[in-house]
Structures are given as structure tokens and as C-alpha cells.
């Protein structure tokens, strides 16, 4: 069994009003030194019957085709076995 952890985040230049609101809340709670908060998506994808290499290639295609929109988002992922 292979588990891929996919992280999808808004591109640097794209305003993230949710992140801004959370940053404000953290400051209100007294957490100092917070310069930025960005909110993204975290997905766990489980695959069976494929090699690590095949899984890596397949998840990359999934990200490109569906999981992330390249106009507004970046993605990265980690593949774990077992």
C-alpha cells in the first residue's frame, strides 16, 4: 500500500483572505511574530498494487489534471510505503 500526502497551496501572489483573517485572530490571541498565514488543502491518497515510482508518476498527473489549478495554485506531495 502506498500513501501520498498532497499539499495544495495558493500561489504567492494570490490574496488569501482566510489566511489574513486567521492571522488577525492569532494576533488577537496574543501570538507575536506571525508575519503571514496561508491556508491550503491537504489530501491523503491511498494506492494499491502500484510501485513507488508508478505511484509518484500517477499522483503527479492527478495534481496536474485535477487536484490543483495551475492558474492559482501550487502543489507538492510526499509518497510513503507501508
Amino acid at each position: 500500500m502506498i500513501r501520498a500526502k498532497v499539499y495544495v497551496t495558493l500561489k504567492g501572489g494570490v490574496l488569501d483572505p482566510q489566511g489574513e483573517t486567521v492571522k488577525g485572530a492569532l494576533e488577537m490571541l496574543g501570538f507575536g511574530g506571525v508575519t503571514d498565514v496561508r491556508i491550503g488543502k491537504f489530501m491523503v491518497i491511498t494506492l494499491n498494487g502500484v510501485s513507488r515510482e508508478e505511484a509518484t508518476s500517477r499522483v503527479d498527473q492527478m495534481c496536474k489534471k485535477l487536484l490543483a489549478n495551475p492558474v492559482i495554485e501550487d502543489y507538492r506531495f510526499e509518497v510513503e510505503e507501508g
Binding site: 494570490v14 490574496l15 489549478n69 492558474v71
Partner: peptide
């Protein structure tokens, strides 16, 4: 249509949330 690439750009969450 934007997601399909038939139009350029994307639509994001309203700034006001």
C-alpha cells in the same frame, strides 16, 4: 469554463469571505 480552459483565469473566494 475557466476550469476547462475555455476561458482564461480563475474565480476565487470573495475577499469579504
Amino acid at each position: 469554463l475557466c476550469e476547462a480552459g475555455l476561458l482564461p483565469g480563475a474565480l476565487l473566494r470573495n475577499t469579504s469571505l
